[in-house]
Design a protein around this nucleic acid. Structure first.
Lengths: 204, 204
DNA sequence: AAATTACTTGACTGATCAGTCTAGATAGAT
DNA sequence: ATCTATCTAGACTGATCAGTCAAGTAATTT
């Protein structure tokens, strides 16, 4: 085996950055190559199409995040605190990205997924797949919280999906309005959605 | 004043249809003209750019929907029922659109807004504006529900924004997964978010 | 009937798009 | 040393893009 290059990784990184900040449609293959410091020939050596690159980029992003997800959702952490910490973590990351690029970017899975899902089955499928994996973290936290009597969740999977949807709506709104505000308070909304029994803020 | 034409309306209709079903980026001016049965010259007679057309299309869509929003959120309807009926109404409309085009399309404000908000201040602004108007319906329903003691909502505007975000996340997920499921049950999630005091599901 | 206003027509431009192709360069295996 | 698999270079193609423009048509006013 001759030399190995890191161009593939640079391409997926560049693609995700550009598509996250702008959109799938306005991110051209040329622009991806330029940011990655690669040439077109290399791009099409590694990927059959822009669509396939996108699938790879989303998978790569998932792999980059998995370790910190595992840590945040460690069973050693009290279940509701896992969710709290996760929301904080995402908030901090988006706030930090805003420093660099001027915008609250929301969730790339949602932005890209919403943009291409009716037209690109491959990308839609990978978004679905990663989405499901992420929901599993919510689901087990919810199941543990239920087991500890902190909430009443007879169907943890459904609860997780509902909470996940709510969270992504909040991320999308933060992107559209370029405002972290709602994100900062999402934890309270989450506790409402979960029906947390005794907690600081809400009366019920 | 010489003859009047309905081309302007046909163009905004066509644009919204195409952008909703596909995306802003993949909807070309040529395609809009073709569906509207208009020529390029007419397009640029009425609109300065694709961006301006989009702003007009979103405003036109709002105007088309306003009457039914007013009816659904009529003060003659019990407040929580207003929300229920609204969710049902949207569900039915999306299910009906799915028959025609094969996909659950979600909310065009969110899809288009999320796609262009970092790049097109004009479109972002109109999405924001319409978004705010829609939230007002939620807000007054929530305020009325609070006044009737059905819920405890010291800050109706914040509650409305949170519920709106949750709802749009659910719409987005329905689009990405092409599944009405979550939408059908959203009313229950909404009641959780609102902290409805006595109802079928939650304990608290 | 002539002038004016409101719209229509479609060919055109130059830029940019995703994707192709051929000719190399580089490094490890033999 | 040379062979071969892996990767790079970058010019090229044809389609499509948003937007322009000059000439034309039709209803209404005067």
């Amino acid at each position: 085996m001759p030399r190995v290059s890191d161009v593939k990784r640079r391409l997926t990184d560049a693609a995700l950055d550009l598509m996250w900040e702008n959109s799938y449609g306005t991110t051209s293959v040329d622009a991806i190559c330029e940011r990655a410091g690669a040439k077109k020939g290399s791009f099409y050596y590694f990927f059959k199409s822009k669509s396939e690159l996108t699938v790879a980029a989303l998978e790569a992003e998932w792999n980059k995040n998995k370790a910190s997800m595992d840590a945040l959702f460690s069973p050693t952490v009290p279940p509701l605190e896992r969710l709290d910490r996760y929301f904080d973590h995402v908030h901090d990351r988006l706030a930090q990205l805003q420093q660099r690029c001027g915008s609250i970017l929301g969730c790339p899975l949602l932005s890209i997924g919403s943009e291409v899902s009716t037209q690109d089955p491959g990308v839609r499928a990978v978004v679905d797949r990663i989405w499901d994996r992420k929901i599993k973290y919510f689901e087990s936290a919810i199941r543990d919280a239920d087991a500890q009597g902190l909430i009443d969740a007879p169907d943890p999977e459904a609860k997780a999906r509902a909470l996940f949807a709510c969270y992504h709506g909040t991320l999308a709104q933060a992107r559209i309005q370029n405002d972290v505000g709602l994100l900062r308070d999402f934890s309270r909304v989450a506790m409402d959605v979960l029906g947390v029994k005794h907690v600081t803020a809400p009366a019920s």
